Computed example of a mutant assay.
Amino acid sequence: GILFIVFDELIACLGMDALLTVGKKNGKPLKKRPKILLLGIFLTLIGLISLLFYWGKISKSIPTVFLNAGMCLLMISLAGYYFVRLNKKEKKYYKRITWLENWYHRFFYNINMSFVVAAFLVIIMTDFSIKLLDNLPITEPKNYPYDLVWMANTDDEEFLNHLTDDEGVQLRKVPCARVTTTDIAEHMGISASTYEKWTGKSLDLKGNEIFVVYQRERFERNKVGIGYNTKNPLIYIGKARADLWLYIKEVATPKVQYFREKFKVVGTEDRILTGVFGSETCEHIIVFSDEYYQKNCVKADGANMAVMMNIP
């Protein structure tokens, strides 16, 4: 926010042209700048490292600022080193070469313009093209392995039998429970034994331990988890209802009387088992210990069976 205010005022007071032509009348200010080089390397590393941790998971804005600042300083320092070195080699430096003389005479202006282009390309590459490539084709088969996913109840068995016997529908039925997290999202809760039958992967879960299967697009995988990256999220066992939250000026706050129980996340994985649902909030799968599931989840309100269908 502070950076935006500063640059907005600079543009308003000086004009965009004045900022883009910085260094246009600066003679030949060429020299080696080791401090700027080290600072550029430092800021670039900070930007790259921050992508892997909190700021990178919340938003790419902070890492992008560090990367662009580091890139600008690196361009100034490395170009300076290059031209100083080139100037010492008489066989390779000719003043009459137009591009070289122009670069040498208006060093900061050319660096400024090159940085504007480079920063624009970096932002396009990191924030736009990857999402575009991730969504081609729009319906990736691996993200939607089934034609239809239905949250049903056990009393729908007769209808499901009709679909398989008379209509030739292929389906998989998985016992589940609806569970709600504090990020205002409803997910599928299953037991560890159900997960093992489904995937062949055994989980040794005990008590309030959970394992989270994140079902989401590749470009969403830096986003926060079900409990805003905490290892002990609060989960309500039951379907999402409007009365689970307190609404103050359109901001939803979970009510403590419903979100009382803490769970311990012992593991996570990115894996598409039923499909990607929604854009902002995907439906993930939360695996509970067999002991906890039988004691609490089977009593949850809402659907108690997930049905994945492939329809001819």
Score class of each variant (00 low, 15 high):
197 K>Q: 05
141 P>F: 09
79 A>Q: 07
184 I>R: 15
288 F>N: 09
57 K>P: 03
106 R>V: 01
127 D>E: 15
241 R>C: 12
167 E>W: 01
279 S>L: 15
82 Y>W: 10
281 T>N: 12
78 L>Q: 03
167 E>Y: 00
7 F>W: 04
22 V>D: 14
268 T>K: 03
105 H>I: 00
236 Y>L: 07
186 E>C: 04
287 V>C: 03
259 F>C: 05
262 K>T: 06
171 L>P: 05
50 S>M: 02
285 I>S: 02
199 T>A: 02
194 T>A: 06
217 E>N: 00
177 A>I: 01
178 R>Y: 10
50 S>G: 00
293 Y>S: 01
39 L>K: 07
214 Y>P: 11
183 D>H: 04
290 D>W: 12
250 E>Y: 06
179 V>L: 14
308 M>R: 03
15 G>I: 05
164 T>A: 07
222 N>F: 10
172 R>K: 15
158 E>N: 07
261 E>H: 14
166 D>N: 10
70 G>M: 07
148 L>C: 08
45 L>A: 12
133 L>H: 01
251 V>F: 03
143 N>C: 02
86 L>M: 05
99 W>I: 04
106 R>E: 09
77 S>I: 02
157 E>M: 10
39 L>T: 09
53 F>Y: 03
260 R>T: 08
2 I>L: 14
217 E>D: 01
143 N>A: 02
32 K>D: 07
125 M>K: 13
268 T>Q: 13
22 V>F: 13
180 T>K: 10
122 V>Q: 13
262 K>P: 07
173 K>I: 05
249 K>R: 14
242 A>T: 00
159 F>L: 12
239 K>H: 09
54 Y>F: 00
172 R>A: 13
259 F>S: 05
28 K>D: 11
100 L>I: 05
255 K>N: 11
88 K>S: 00
282 C>D: 08
93 Y>C: 03
232 N>T: 06
61 S>H: 10
116 V>G: 11
207 G>D: 15
217 E>R: 00
62 I>S: 09
8 D>S: 05
149 V>F: 11
183 D>K: 07
59 S>T: 04
124 I>H: 11
193 S>N: 08
197 K>Y: 01
130 I>Y: 09
136 L>D: 11
312 P>Q: 10
69 A>S: 14
28 K>H: 04
98 T>D: 12
100 L>N: 02
263 F>V: 01
187 H>S: 08
3 L>H: 15
298 V>H: 11
162 H>I: 02
18 A>I: 03
68 N>G: 08
18 A>E: 13
261 E>D: 15
296 N>I: 01
261 E>Q: 12
34 P>T: 02
145 P>W: 13
168 G>F: 05
263 F>P: 01
112 N>R: 06
286 I>T: 07
292 Y>E: 08
97 I>S: 06
102 N>K: 00
